[in-house]
Design a protein around this nucleic acid. Structure first.
Length: 702
DNA sequence: CCGCGTACTGTTTTT
DNA sequence: CAGTACGCGG
C-alpha cells in the first residue's frame, strides 16, 4: 500500500529533530522501518543508526521488519535494542572509564533491589514494617531526576512535604547506593542514569558514542523518563533525533515516564519538525468511535489530534453484562469457540485483555476446558521466578565464585545449616582476612565458632560448585551441566517438599525444565563457550520474554499494558468495573504512593487520566470486532462483592454500543465442580515451555 | 539452626 | 484464599 502524505513526510524528512505523533494503528512501525530503509538507501552507514524501543518484543519486531525491507545482512549492522540494553552495552564497553574493578558487573532486578533495601532496613533497625517496593519507587524517582542523596535530604529539610516514606527513603538511599557499589551491581535505572553521568563527566567518552551513532530513532517516546531524555539530549545533541509516540497512549507514568517529554519535545529539541499521523488503518469505524468517545472526555494537556477511520462498516461494539466472573469467562470462551467454528477465526486472531493479571485465571481455565490453546503475556516474569533465579545463581557462582550476591542467594538453598548466624561469621572471616565470602566458605574449619553442621554445609556446597565447575571445564553442554546441578543440589526434593501442593511443585519444576530448554537451544546453536554463557546469564535479568514463539496459533491473554503495540481481529476487554478499571489503587491515595512526574499534587486525578488512556489502548487493539464485559458481582480477597460498571463505559454514548445480559447456566453446583476441575487442569498444564513432567512424588514425611 | 504453627495482608501495570 | 512474616519449641 502507498504511504499517505504525512507518512511520507515522516519517512522522507532529512536532517534535524522530528516528532512523529502517531495515533493508534496509524502505521507507526511502518514509518519507522521505511525511514530506516530510506536512510540506508541514501548511503547512511547501518552502523551509525540506533533505534531504541522499550521492550525486547518491540525491538525484535522492528528489527525483523527492517530486515524484510533491506535484507538480513544489512539489518544485522543496525543497532536496534531497548533503552536498557543500550545502556548495558555502553556501561559494558566503558568499564574502565567507570572505574570498575574488572570488566564484569551484575544487574539487579527488582527483587534483588528490594532485598538490598530489606537488608538496609534491618541494619537501620527501623522497627516498622515498611513497604520496600514503595521505598524503591521513591529512590528510583530520585535517581531518574539525578537527585543526589545529600541534595535530596537538603531539599526535604527546607521544603514542607516530608511524608514518612520520604524520610525513610532518604535514609535508605545512600546506603542502598553503597550496597550496589559493594556488589559492583547496577539496577535497571542505573543502566540509563550511569550512562548519563558518565557522559556528563567525560566529554571524550560521549564524543565517541556521538560519532558512532549519527541517527537516533526512539519508539514509544511517550514512555520515556527524565533520565532517558537526558541520554537522548547528550547523544543526539539536538541533531538527527527522531522520536515516535502518542501522548494519548502514555500509560507508564507510574514507573516514572514523563509525558511532558513528548508534549515539550519542540522545546527540548529546537527546530523540531512535527508530523501527525491521524489515519487509523487498523480498527473498523464502530471500534474507533468507542475509542474516540472515551478519549473525548479526557482532561489535561494533550497534543491535539483526532483519529480518522479508514475501515468503514463492521459490527457494533458489544457490551456484555455478566452476573459473575464464571459467567464472564464462560461467555468469553463460548464466544471464542463460536468465532473459531463458525466465523473461520484462528486462535491467534483472538485476544482477551484485562486490567490486572489476577483476572486471567478463570478465563484461562474456561478456554482450556474447551481445548482452546492459549498464550499468556505478562504475569510474573519467567526469569524472576524464585527457582529460576536460584538455578541461575548456582551457575553464576560456579562460573565466578566472587559473585557474592549469587553466592548469598544459594548459600543456604536448599537448607544446609548455614543460617544468618553462620553467614555473618563467614562474612566476618572474609572481611578480617580481606578475602571473599567464597574463600571463607572453602575453609569453614578456619572460621571461628562455626557450628559443625554449618561446616558440613559449606563442604557440601563447595562439592556441588566444584563439580559444576569441572563440568564447565570439560565443556559439557550447558543444559547438561544445569541438569546435573539440579540433581547435585537437590532442587527436586526441595521443591517437592517445600510446595504447598503437587500442582505448585509441578509448575516450579516445569519452570526449571523451561530454563533447561532455553539452555539446550543455545547449545544446539553451538554457543557453548563458557564466557559467552556467563554474559548470557547476566543478560537474562533484562529479558522478560523467554524466546517467545510468536508463530504459535493461540488465543492471547494479556494485561492491557502488555497488549500495547499488538492488534487482533477479535478482542475481548473484560472486567470493566469500578475498582478494577479504573483500578482501586488509582482511586484512593496512599502513603506509599509516589507522585508521577508532573502530577502537581493531584495524584488521583492524574492517574485516573492514565487509566482512561489505558482503556483507550485496550480498545484500539481491536481490528474488526470488540467485546467489552463486566461482572455485577466479583470476589475480592475471598468475599463476593457487588460491582458497578466502569465510569469509562458511561462515557460512551448508548448508540455506539449493543448491550446484553449473560446470566449463565441455571445449575450452579454442576458448573462449580466443572470449573474446579478445569482450574486444576490449567494449573497442571501451565508451563511456558514444554511439558513440565514430574513424577508427583508424595510429600516427604519426616 | 530448622520446622511448624499462627496471623496478616494483599496484588496494577514492567525494563 | 494463598503466600509470607513472625514466633516458638525441638
Amino acid at each position: 500500500m502507498e504511504l499517505n502524505s504525512s507518512q511520507r513526510a515522516a519517512v522522507e524528512h532529512d536532517l534535524g529533530p522530528m516528532l512523529v505523533l502517531a495515533g493508534a494503528g496509524s502505521g507507526k512501525t511502518r514509518v519507522v522501518t521505511e525511514r530506516i530503509a530510506r536512510l540506508l538507501q541514501r548511503g547512511v552507514s547501518a552502523r551509525s543508526i540506533l533505534a531504541m524501543t522499550f521492550t525486547n518484543k518491540a525491538s525484535a519486531e522492528m528489527h525483523e521488519r527492517v530486515g524484510k525491507l533491506v535484507g538480513a545482512k544489512l539489518a544485522r549492522e543496525l543497532t536496534v535494542c531497548t533503552f536498557h540494553r543500550f545502556g548495558l552495552d555502553v556501561l559494558g564497553a566503558e568499564t574502565k572509564a567507570l572505574g570498575l574493578r574488572g570488566k564484569s558487573f551484575a544487574i539487579f532486578d527488582q527483587s534483588d533491589c528490594t532485598g538490598v533495601i530489606r537488608e538496609v532496613l534491618r541494619e537501620l533497625r527501623s522497627g516498622r514494617n515498611y513497604d520496600v517496593n514503595a521505598i524503591l519507587a521513591r529512590i528510583s524517582n530520585a535517581k531518574n531526576a539525578f537527585v543526589e542523596a545529600e541534595a535530596w535530604a537538603e531539599s526535604q529539610r527546607k521544603g514542607k512535604g516530608l511524608d514518612e516514606y520520604d524520610e525513610i527513603a532518604m535514609l535508605v538511599y545512600p546506603r542502598y547506593i553503597a550496597a550496589l557499589r559493594a556488589f559492583q551491581a547496577f539496577d535497571f535505572d542505573d543502566l540509563i542514569c550511569e550512562v548519563v553521568r558518565l557522559w556528563q563527566r567525560r566529554p571524550d567518552v560521549l564524543e565517541r558514542w556521538r560519532t558512532r551513532y549519527r541517527y537516533v530513532i526512539v519508539d514509544e517516546y511517550q514512555d520515556t523518563n527524565h533520565a532517558q531524555l537526558e541520554l537522548l539530549r547528550l547523544l543526539g545533541a539536538h541533531k538527527n533525533v527522531v522520536v515516535v509516540g502518542d501522548d494519548d497512549q502514555s500509560i507508564y507514568a507510574w514507573r516514572g515516564a514523563d509525558v511532558r517529554n513528548i508534549l515539550d519535545f519542540e522545546e527540548h529539541f529546537t527546530g523540531a519538525k512535527v508530523v501527525k499521523l491521524e489515519h487509523n488503518y487498523r480498527s473498523r469505524a464502530p471500534v474507533l468511535d468507542v475509542a474516540n468517545a472515551v478519549l473525548a472526555r479526557s482532561g489535561g494537556r494533550r497534543h491535539k489530534k483526532s483519529l480518522i477511520a479508514t475501515r468503514m462498516g463492521g459490527d457494533k461494539v458489544q457490551l456484555v453484562v455478566c452476573t459473575d466472573p464464571d459467567v464472564e469467562s464462560s461467555f468469553v470462551a463460548t464466544e471464542a469457540m463460536r468465532l473459531l467454528e463458525r466465523e473461520g477465526a484462528r486462535p491467534k486472531d483472538i485476544a482477551v485483555l484485562y486490567r490486572s493479571n489476577l483476572l486471567s485465571g478463570p478465563i484461562e481455565a474456561a478456554l482450556k476446558e474447551r481445548q482452546i490453546p492459549v498464550r499468556m503475556i505478562g504475569g510474573t516474569q519467567f526469569f524472576e521466578r524464585k527457582e529460576v533465579k536460584d538455578l541461575i545463581a548456582y551457575l553464576r557462582v560456579a562460573l565466578d565464585p566472587e559473585d557474592e550476591m549469587s553466592l548469598r542467594r544459594i548459600i543456604n538453598y536448599p537448607s544446609r545449616a548455614i543460617g544468618d548466624v553462620a553467614v555473618s561469621k563467614l562474612g566476618a572471616y572474609a572481611t578480617a582476612r580481606e578475602t571473599s565470602l567464597w574463600v571463607a566458605v572453602t575453609r569453614p574449619h578456619a572460621v571461628h565458632e562455626l557450628s559443625t553442621a554449618a561446616i558440613e554445609g559449606c563442604r557440601q556446597l563447595v562439592r556441588i560448585i566444584e563439580a559444576t565447575r569441572q563440568r564447565f571445564d570439560r565443556k559439557e553442554p550447558s543444559a547438561e551441566i544445569a541438569r546435573a546441578l539440579l540433581v547435585d543440589a537437590g532442587f527436586k526434593e526441595d521443591i517437592t517438599a517445600g510446595s504447598t501442593s503437587n500442582s505448585v511443585a509441578a509448575r516450579r519444576w516445569g519452570n526449571l525444565e523451561g530454563l533447561l530448554n532455553v539452555f539446550a537451544r543455545r547449545d544446539d546453536q553451538g554457543k557453548g563457550d563458557r564466557d559467552q554463557f556467563a554474559s548470557f546469564l547476566r543478560l537474562l535479568a533484562l529479558r522478560q520474554d523467554s524466546e517467545e514463539e510468536e508463530a504459535t496459533d493461540r488465543v492471547t491473554l494479556s494485561s492491557m499494558h502488555g497488549s500495547k503495540g499488538l492488534e487482533f481481529p477479535y478482542v475481548f476487554v473484560i472486567g470493566l468495573e469500578e475498582g478494577i478499571m479504573p483500578h482501586q489503587r488509582t482511586l484512593t491515595e496512599r502513603a506509599t504512593d509516589v507522585a508521577p512526574p508532573g502530577a502537581d499534587g493531584d495524584v488521583v486525578g492524574h492517574s485516573i487520566e492514565e487509566e482512561r488512556r489505558l482503556f483507550y489502548v485496550a480498545v484500539t487493539r481491536a481490528k474488526d470486532r470488540l467485546y467489552m464485559t463486566y461482572a455485577k458481582h466479583r470476589g475480592s480477597r475471598g468475599k463476593m462483592v457487588a460491582r458497578t460498571p466502569s465510569r469509562f463505559l458511561l462515557d460512551v454514548p448508548d448508540e455506539l454500543i449493543e448491550e446484553r445480559e449473560e446470566e449463565g447456566p441455571q445449575a450452579p453446583e454442576l458448573d462449580k465442580t466443572k470449573a474446579g476441575a478445569a482450574s486444576v487442569l490449567a494449573a497442571l498444564s501451565f508451563n511456558p515451555f514444554s511439558g513440565g513432567e514430574m513424577p508427583l512424588v508424595p510429600r516427604r514425611r519426616p
